[in-house]
């Protein structure tokens, strides 16, 4: 992966200005994009086509076409059970669709396992934070680095082969910890962190891999208001570094505040796309959130359907158990 990565991505400081210009350009490019589901983007980093995932008889995801613009922050929103997390799992290789094609930087991902997707530069976080509880914070960070010589079995026993690289990684990890205000916790077990700190650690750890596309699954869930602002800042800074961000979120303030583009899913389909202020007032979106039957009482059928969808959502969150 790192070969294709722009060398300027790693640090915010000196190279921020051209990166910021680039992302401003990218946002400007979105101005001409139609506000329709499946709209073509001028410079897509992810293209998904005809993705369908069924659990038993229930279709959790049915996305006809979706493109994610490079270098901007795209929000993926939708009511509970809309299939957002399942879609995330499908894109990152943690689950397999029944049919469909999707690509990252023009490379097809149909048969690429999750770990290789991550190595290609598409790193995700999880809705239920997955920190490595009984490793220290700094060790959590070190695991995030890619292409470590010491991770090969043959070289692992000979420390001189990997010590130099390990030191470089540690320097980088310390910088990220500093930036994410976790430096004081460096030697603590990750399991002792608060929910918000775990979110920060997970995001910082994802950055150890220098990803081009950062996929955040509900980064604000369970984070206290004081931390929210700094998290928002961090997400924005990712864009300033030239990275692309795709995130799932329920917090509409956050969506309005930081996203350049919003994709709305409901019942597995993409129902609307557009800049935040336009999308929020779209009738299809209001229908999706309140239900198109929001003027009727819930019949038993509908209720059952909702329950079934909730179940599918739960299933989708445990993709590993499904294999």
């Amino acid at each position: 992966m790192p070969a294709e990565t722009e060398p300027t991505l790693t640090k915010g400081g000196g190279t921020a200005a051209p990166a910021a210009t680039r992302s401003a350009e990218a946002r400007a490019a979105l101005a001409g994009v139609e506000h329709e589901p499946g709209a073509k983007k001028p410079d897509p980093i992810v293209v998904a086509h005809g993705i369908r995932r069924q659990f038993g008889g229930l279709t959790a995801v049915d996305v006809e076409h979706l493109e994610i613009q490079k270098g901007v922050i795209t929000a993926l929103i939708g009511p509970n059970g809309a299939g957002k997390t399942t879609f995330f799992n499908l894109l990152t290789g943690f689950d397999r669709p029944n049919e469909g094609t999707w690509s990252f930087k023009g490379q097809a991902l149909d048969k690429v396992p999750a770990y290789k997707v991550a190595r290609m530069g598409m790193v995700r976080t999880f809705q239920l934070t997955k920190v490595l509880s009984r490793l220290t914070v700094i060790e959590n960070m070190r695991v995030g680095a890619t292409d470590q010589r010491g991770e090969g079995l043959l070289s692992a026993m000979f420390a001189w082969l990997w010590r130099g690289q390990e030191q470089d990684n540690t320097v980088k990890a310390d910088e990220l910890l500093e930036r994410f205000l976790l430096h004081k916790k460096r030697e603590d077990f990750a399991g002792s962190l608060s929910g918000g700190q775990r979110k920060l650690l997970e995001m910082a750890r994802a950055l150890m891999a220098d990803p081009e596309l950062v996929m955040l699954d509900e980064p604000m869930a369970g984070v206290n208001p004081a931390l929210k602002q700094s998290l928002l800042g961090h997400v924005k800074s990712l864009r300033e570094e030239g990275r692309t961000v795709l995130f799932v979120e329920h917090d509409m303030d956050m969506v309005r505040d930081i996203s350049d583009w919003v994709v709305v899913m409901a019942q597995g389909k993409v129902v609307a796309e557009g800049p935040p202020h336009t999308v929020m007032s779209d009738q299809r979106v209001i229908d999706a959130y309140l239900g198109s039957h929001h003027d009727q009482d819930l019949s038993e059928d509908v209720e059952e359907q909702i329950l079934a969808e909730a179940q599918a959502e739960i299933d989708a969150e445990h993709p590993e158990e499904t294999k």
Partner: peptide, 10 residues
């Protein structure tokens, strides 16, 4: 600790 986390890190 968590194999999915490790997978997500490549």
């Amino acid at each position: 600790e968590d194999e999915n986390a490790v997978r997500s890190l490549g």
